[in-house]
Design a protein around this nucleic acid. Structure first.
Lengths: 204, 204
DNA sequence: CAGAATACTGAACAGTGTTCAGTAAATCAA
DNA sequence: TTGATTTACTGAACACTGTTCAGTATTCTG
């Protein structure tokens, strides 16, 4: 009975259409610009239809972020497979992280710069998906640092502490550049490389 | 004619009441929790009355942030006047910055972690007040770094570049700790001190 | 062809920031 | 003490927001 399969396919198609319309709005102006009614109008369905596919707005945008952060993960994986030295790999990974955030500011801001108070009356499940977005890339950072320690190219220290501290720093670079768009930063390329020099240097 | 003065005083009193009610709501749950109707109810006035004292919600919350960031400025000034060595002063200032952010998460997040797309249809004037909140403390950081360079306790380098890079890093510590409240950080005290070691160390 | 399952909608609820005509009170000039 | 004017304030409305749910219309099944 191919009916069930066709139905599932149609359901998935509509789901993708919703995600597509939401992605457009999200890319344009971030989370606040995504509205159920705007999505509904773009895909020519009633707003309530969206709730047959997603339990709330956070889950919907969360899916967009999960998908996009998977791209970061792929990039980090690609770097790992280049066969560079542990330190070069680490440095390239940190740089890729910053570049990713600057390429997808809406996603980065939503995942890492949104106060959790915004998720007050939201299903726990939806929120956890958002929190989880960056976890895999953090694990990669930790692994990269572990390799450097093992190779003896950075100082031996508590891995978790070192990883969290390092993440906080590159998060600062990324978040600062991405949210404070009207701050008169010096040449951003120079600023990033200088900061990476300091961050990596302070590991040695 | 004392009438005009009394009127001005009464106007200022109501203004302060509005700010007071807004401050409560802002402290509790951040910007999203501040609503004109909630404020109005607390002070027993109509919502529209608020607009006789503030041109929009951003300006209202912006005033709260300006006032609170002045407190950071005082703290940094106090540290400067302790007569410590340039490096100790710098370190204490960075620490005070992070502590401030953790003490006033709503203010810190609103000023530094809010995407500017949220201020789309808002009066420019209101937004500029928000952007300006942290400027004075950034200037102090720059001055502190200049003193260190002058004293020869940190490496000589482009001051603006060094200051921006340093700010991005402590911003990362602050913002990360304050927004990612459900991330399983290691002991935060240790994490902050370790990160400061690295940040200050990478200046030398 | 009747009945069950599925897909979808329209209207409503409760909230948001903001505007503005209109009212009520206080002050001033005659 | 009037009448005019200024000031303070409000209520209702506008245009949005996320979300829910009874009800309809369509499609598939036995």
């Amino acid at each position: 009975m191919g009916v069930a399969q066709r139905r599932a396919r149609e359901k998935d198609e509509l789901r993708r259409k919703i995600l597509g319309a939401a992605a457009e709005l999200f890319l344009e102006e971030g989370y606040q610009n995504v509205s159920m009614r705007k999505i509904a109008e773009r895909i020519e369905y009633a707003p309530s239809t969206i709730y047959l596919h997603f339990q709330d707005k956070v889950q919907l945008v969360g899916y967009l972020c999960t998908e996009t952060f998977a791209e970061l993960d792929r990039r980090l994986e690609d770097i790992m497979e280049l066969g560079l030295s542990p330190l070069e790999t680490l440095r390239k990974s940190l740089r890729a992280y910053i570049d990713f955030g600057r390429e997808y500011p809406s996603h980065y801001i939503f995942v890492f710069c949104t106060p959790e108070s915004l998720f007050k009356n939201i299903e726990k499940e939806s929120c956890q998906a958002v929190y989880g977005c960056g976890m895999s890339s953090f694990e990669r950072l930790k692994a990269g640092l572990a390799e450097c320690m093992h190779a003896g190219v950075i100082r031996e220290a508590d891995l978790e502490l070192t990883a969290q501290s390092t993440w906080l720093m590159i998060h600062g670079i990324t978040a600062g550049l991405v949210t404070c768009t009207s701050f008169p930063f010096v040449d951003k390329e120079l600023l990033i490389e200088h900061s990476l020099d300091r961050i990596v240097g302070s590991l040695q």
